[in-house]
Simulated scan of single mutants.
Amino acid sequence: MQFGELIANMFAAVLLLGLLAIGFFIFGKPVWPERTARMVIILPVDAMKTAAINTTRLHLPANFEVGLVQPRPSR
């Protein structure tokens, strides 16, 4: 192998590695995805919040004072 072929092969290898590095920088994703743990924490159930109730309607007052209502904000 001649000295010129050795330099050409080294230049080709450096050029190939450079193109690969530029490709990784452009796309910005690693070759292998980062391993992360997916953990779910199950909290104890609150019986008062999950209990079924007989009435599904809201208990609204029969009337209210109009003077307490604030006007809608203007844009």
Score class of each variant (00 low, 15 high):
Leu68Lys: 14
Arg72Cys: 05
Met10Asn: 13
Leu20Thr: 05
Leu20Tyr: 12
Phe11Trp: 12
Phe27Ser: 06
Gly18His: 05
Val31Ala: 02
Phe64Gly: 03
Gly67Ala: 15
Pro71Ala: 00
Ala62Ser: 07
Arg75His: 06
His59Gly: 03
Val40Tyr: 10
Ala12Trp: 05
Arg35Ala: 07
Gln70Lys: 14
Trp32Val: 09
Gln2Lys: 15
Leu17Arg: 03
Ser74Trp: 03
Thr36Met: 10
Leu19Trp: 05
Lys29Leu: 11
Ala13Thr: 09
Met10Thr: 12
Ala62Leu: 01
Phe27Tyr: 04
Leu16Met: 09
Leu19Thr: 02
Gly4Ile: 03
Trp32Gly: 01
Thr50Ser: 07
Glu65Asn: 12
Leu15Ser: 14
Arg35Tyr: 07
Gly23Ala: 12
Asp46Lys: 00
Phe24Cys: 09
Pro73Thr: 01
Pro73Leu: 00
Ile41Val: 15
Ala51Met: 11
Leu15Met: 13
Asn9Gly: 07
Lys49Ile: 12
Val69Trp: 11
Val31Lys: 00
Pro61Ser: 02
Lys29Val: 05
Thr50Phe: 05
Ile41Gly: 02
Gly4Asp: 14
Leu16Pro: 00
Arg57Thr: 12
Asp46Pro: 00
Val14Asp: 13
Thr55Gly: 14
Ile53Leu: 09
Met48Trp: 13
Ala37Met: 11
Leu60Arg: 02
Leu20Glu: 05
Arg38Ser: 06
Ala37Ser: 11
Ala47Thr: 14
Arg38Thr: 07
Asn54Arg: 10
Leu16His: 04
Arg38Phe: 10
Glu5Val: 04
Phe3Ser: 14
Glu34Ser: 07
Met10Lys: 13
Val40Ala: 08
Val45Gly: 04
Leu15Ala: 15
Lys49Pro: 01
Phe11Asp: 15
Ser74Met: 03
Val40His: 07
Leu15Arg: 13
Glu34Tyr: 08
Met48His: 15
Arg57Pro: 03
Val66Trp: 06
Ala13Gln: 12
Ile53Asn: 07
Thr50Ala: 04
